[in-house]
């Protein structure tokens, strides 16, 4: 099964970095979809199936935190795991997002192998849940 991953960041450079890290990771990825803010990301999630969301926090129009709250409200969080990749390092912010159901949090700057590890772990967990 090939996974569809949604990458959400207002910086084209960061979207490219994450895309490249995923492409060289060896993970079974069918398509990488991109969005520049939380609002675009929600539209993408409504249009087609997404297996994992990798999102920044600080974005224009709709932040990553607002996007996660909206995903909770629309019950997307029940089916779509979210990984936050952000320069924010506040322990309180991390706790707040984890309480909302965010699966993992990676700080910027990140190494490609960290992206691979985190996405791989989330996809594995998802596979095991589907098996049950």
């Amino acid at each position: 099964m090939s996974y569809r991953i949604l990458v959400v960041d207002d910086s084209p450079v960061v979207r490219h970095m994450i895309r490249k890290a995923i492409e060289i990771s060896g993970l079974d990825v069918g398509e990488i979809v991109e969005a520049a803010d939380g609002s675009e990301a929600l539209s993408a999630m409504e249009k087609s199936w997404i297996d994992v969301v990798v999102a920044d926090i600080n974005m224009p129009v709709m932040t990553g935190a607002e996007m996660v709250k909206e995903m909770v409200a629309r019950e997307f969080m029940a089916t779509i795991p979210v990984i936050i990749v952000s320069s924010e390092k506040s322990a309180r912010r991390l706790a707040e997002l984890k309480a909302l159901g965010v699966k993992a949090y990676l700080n910027k700057p990140f190494r490609p192998e960290q992206i691979k590890q985190v996405i791989g772990d989330v996809l594995l967990e998802r596979k095991e849940i589907e098996r049950v």
Partner: peptide
């Protein structure tokens, strides 16, 4: 600059403070 802001926000305000970071 965004990455630096993340690190400096903790250095200046501490790890427990949720800071706004502008675009």
């Amino acid at each position: 600059a965004n990455m630096l802001a993340g690190v400096l926000a903790v250095a200046v305000f501490g790890p427990e403070t949720i800071c706004r970071i502008s675009i």
